[in-house]
Design a binder for these strands. Structure first.
Length: 300
DNA sequence: ATGGCATATCCTATATGA
């Protein structure tokens, strides 16, 4: 099962890019952020035509999140992050997909800092971490995927000095991310690529994309139920190079969640949460060798 | 401190993003 997260920066203007990516990479589950559209403007018919069922939570002008499932329908669990009934920003969706709990998030940017927007970012992050504690321990396979608006370490930015005053790199933001990870979550991209620079965002200014001056701010995290199933992770950089591209590229993982594994995952939900899964199916090792996680080369 | 670019809407101007 291939799962991806993609900040589209406006789903209406980006629809051709989104459809092209879906057709070429065929992800099974997709978390989208920054729809920048009201619910009624969500391109439900076009996505269905492309083979994807969807749930979405829009908002005028800003924010907005969605979860897509290829040849299926996400089963909605919640449409808002708990903890603040006064928060009306569309930044969170949670759904069950093939026995996996998929959490799609668009964490606040927080600029300028210091200020009320940065306070909102940190408060949102705290609410999120309070919620994920329960998710982590639920015994269900859980994935957190989205635009976290945090540069976790200096290895995740082309030049830390250029972003020194930015909300994405502040110690408070990084501490919040580390506190989240300390619940046990696996940062898939960094785990699969421990040393090399990986970026998921390149701003529109100063030729940053052609120079590969980017940030790693879109993240996919797994709990202990799902981490053993991680087979590969990466970024579809080619999407950033297309005409009329978003400033983010799709970030993806591949999970060994076949029919047999799905049953194993379902069984895992009935175990005591603190226990490790009994015996990992031997198919995992064999499958790892078989296929490099490259898409079919239909075009260049 | 600002800008560079791109998105949105209350669109010849402004708010937001990262």
């Amino acid at each position: 099962m291939k799962l991806a997260t993609f900040n589209v920066n406006g789903i209406r203007t980006r629809l051709p890019n989104l459809l092209h990516w879906l057709a070429r990479e065929s992800p099974d589950v997709v978390c989208l952020q920054e729809l920048k559209a009201l619910d009624g403007a969500f391109p439900e018919a076009e996505l269905r035509q492309a083979g994807y069922g969807a749930i979405w939570k829009g908002q005028r002008s800003w924010n907005g999140v969605a979860i897509l499932v290829k040849d299926g329908e996400p089963v909605e669990i919640r449409r808002e992050l708990p903890g603040d009934p006064a928060d009306e920003q569309s930044r969170y969706l949670e759904a069950a997909v093939n026995g996996v709990i998929v959490c799609c998030l668009y964490l606040p940017n927080g600029n300028p800092q210091p200020g009320p927007k940065f306070d909102y970012k940190l408060a949102w992050f705290e609410r999120f971490t309070a919620h994920t504690q329960g998710l982590y321990q639920s015994g269900h396979p859980v994935v957190l995927a989205g635009d976290f608006n945090v540069i976790p370490t200096d290895a995740d930015v082309y030049n830390p000095k250029s972003w020194q005053k930015d909300a994405l790199i502040q110690p408070e933001s990084r501490d919040a991310y580390q506190r989240l990870l300390s619940q046990g979550w696996l940062d898939c991209l960094r785990h699969e690529h421990p040393h090399e620079p990986i970026y998921t965002f390149w701003d529109y200014f100063r030729q940053h994309w052609p120079q590969n001056k980017g940030l790693r701010i879109d993240h996919i995290l797994l709990n202990a139920e799902l981490a053993p199933q991680l087979e590969a992770a990466g970024v579809h950089n080619w999407v950033r190079g297309e005409e009329h591209a978003s400033d983010h590229a799709p970030t993806w993982i591949e999970l060994s969640l076949t029919g047999a594994k799905r049953s194993a995952a379902a069984a895992a939900t009935r175990r005591i949460p603190t226990e490790a899964p009994a015996d990992p199916p031997p198919a995992a090792a064999a499958r790892k060798k078989r296929a490099p996680a490259k898409p079919p080369r239909s075009k260049s």
